[in-house]
Structures are given as structure tokens and as C-alpha cells.
Amino acid sequence: MDSHSKVFITGINGFTGIYLSKYFADKNFEVFGLANHNESKNPNIYICDLLEKEKLNAIIKEIQPNIVIHLAAISFVGHKNLSEMYDVNVLGTQNLLEAIKNEAKNSIRKVILASSATVYGNQSETILSENLSPNPINHYGISKLAMEFTAKTYFDTLPIIITRPFNYTAPEQNINFVIPKITKAFKEKASILELGNINVYREYNSINFICECYYKLAISNFYSEIVNLCSGKTHSLNEIINICTKISKHNLEIKINPDFVRSNEIYKLSGSPEKLYGMISLTNDYSIEDTLNKNFAD
């Protein structure tokens, strides 16, 4: 794939899309995107709803993308309008795949669809591999699994990779997520921070790790695959707090709020990166210290 290839990113103005568009631009790709709004007035960003089939077809026909990375989705688990969640996440994805199949068959080299690790749901395993049967426990996870099944019907006609990202973080992430919540408290020199169980271990990967994974998968020769975007490295919130204390040189009191503690919470949960690392090689080990330092630098 030459350096003047075109990448088309849906949800380009979202948290991940902003970082990913810069990553591909730095690799000399011509970056196009789909969004609900475009304050930047960037002519390469198109305003279109995934449910607007004809408009979507026209955009794909005009751009003739080589790579499509589909990030756009309703991802808030508590989203009240369930039919809208399924319409966007499932039917919106089908509309995009139809548009690519009908309008960009000759230009397309790779389609990457962002699913989610939430499709695994409740499992008896603590290291989640792609071989497990998905068992989602909320409508977001169910809609993403339905999206995966829909996408698999296009495996014969389009070069698709479906990714299942685990937790990742960076500056600009919504404060509803735990890492931004913690770093904000330290940056503002708060005296008290209320959290749930701080002794459970989870992945907290860097956005740079995620961007490199998307890029390497996009230029790889793999397709018709479902793969975790994970490192397998876990950290407890207690570890995160200790690192933040060291970076900020600020001590605060942690109060465990019983309302934030989930019943039967799994002590340690991570993805298996074995399949991912069999497909691509990464240039960086993306330490948690580096990741947290960036959250303090913004």
C-alpha cells in the first residue's frame, strides 16, 4: 500500500477517531472521515448519518477509500433509545458495508470494524480469547455481537477484520471513565476521591497502542478475522493511584463507595493477545507509567 493511500474513518471526531486520524496522517495517508458535525470545516470530513444510505453511498463513491476503519457507534451502555442503538450499531454497519461493496470494490484493501470486548460478557475464564463463545450481558454488547454476525456475511466479498478492543485511555477521554476520573482528581489536588473496588486488575492500554494495532492490521495481509485489541497486561486501581501520586506529588484520601462496588466482581480480567501478536508486531511496550504521564501532560 503506497503512502498516498486513502483512509476513511467513521466517527472521526470521537475520542479514538481524533487520535487515529492523526496517526494515519503522520504515515502520509490522505485521511477522510464521517461525523455528525464538523466544527473544523475540514473538507475531508463528511457529515452523514450511517442510516442515510444514499448519502453514504455517494460519499464512498466519491472518496474511493483504500482502508475503512469503522469506529462510529452508540457506545454508552445506558443509552435510553435501544432501537436507535441497534439501528446505528447493526444496520448502520450493514449500510456502510453495502456502500463499500457497491461503490468501492476496486479501491478497497481493508475494512476494519470496531466491535468491543463487552461481547464476551460473563465468562468462567479470566483471560479472554477469541475462541470463547460470546456471552454479552447488556444491549451495547448484544448490538456489537449482532454487528459482528452481520459483518461475517460480507467476509466472502470484502477484506474485513473485526476488532474487540479492551480498555484504553488517553487525554481527552470522557470523565465517566475511571482513569480520567483518577487523574483529574490528582491534577486538581482533590483531598478525597470516591472509587469502587481498587484491588481488581484490568487492562488500561494506551491510545497509541490501539492506533498502532489498527494501522498494522490495516496494512497487513490478514482478513476474515476477529481479533482482540489487548496487551494482556493488567493493573489494579491501587497501582494506578500509586503511580499518579508519584507523578503529581500529591496525596489524596481514597474512599470506597459501596455503590461503586460491583457484586461478584472478577478479581483479574484481561484479553489474550496471542492471536493479535501472531498477526502484527508492535514497536513499543507502552508502559502504564508512560500512558499516565500523558494524562498529566495535557
Rank of each mutant, 00 (worst) to 15 (best):
K6M: 11
N138Q: 09
K246C: 07
Y267T: 15
D26T: 09
E212D: 13
T234M: 09
Y86I: 15
P43H: 00
K41A: 13
I74P: 02
G33N: 07
F222I: 13
L145G: 01
I207C: 02
L282C: 05
K246A: 04
L56S: 02
Y267M: 14
V200F: 14
F155S: 05
L50F: 05
S272P: 01
V90F: 05
E62G: 07
K55N: 11
V200I: 15
D156M: 03
N95P: 00
L276Q: 00
G11F: 09
S115W: 06
T163M: 12
N284W: 04
M85I: 14
S133H: 08
L282W: 03
R202G: 00
V227Q: 04
I59M: 04
A185H: 10
Y120K: 07
N44C: 01
S107E: 10
I254A: 04
E125W: 03
L34P: 02
T16A: 09
Y23K: 00
F29P: 03
G196W: 09
A297N: 12
L20G: 04
A25P: 02
N44G: 01
I137A: 08
F32L: 06
F296T: 06
P171E: 11
A114W: 02
E39F: 13
D298S: 14
Q173S: 03
Q64H: 01
E289H: 10
S3I: 14
N95I: 00
C244A: 10
D49N: 13
I288P: 04
K105C: 09
F15E: 07
R109T: 07
L292M: 00
N205L: 12
V7W: 14
V68W: 10
S143D: 08
Y23D: 03
Y214M: 10
Q123A: 07
A146Y: 04
G232Y: 07
V68A: 07
D2P: 06
I60V: 14
I182F: 04
N295S: 11
S75C: 05
K275P: 00
E125Q: 12
A58P: 03
C244V: 15
A35V: 03
E52K: 10
N293A: 04
F8D: 07
L229I: 15
G92L: 04
Y23C: 04
K6F: 04
P136T: 14
N44R: 02
H4Y: 14
I256E: 06
V77R: 13
Y86N: 11
K184Q: 13
I162L: 11
L269W: 08
G271C: 11
F32W: 10
S191D: 08
T234P: 03
M1D: 07
S40D: 05
T163P: 00
I162Q: 05
T118P: 01
D2W: 13
C48I: 02
G14I: 12
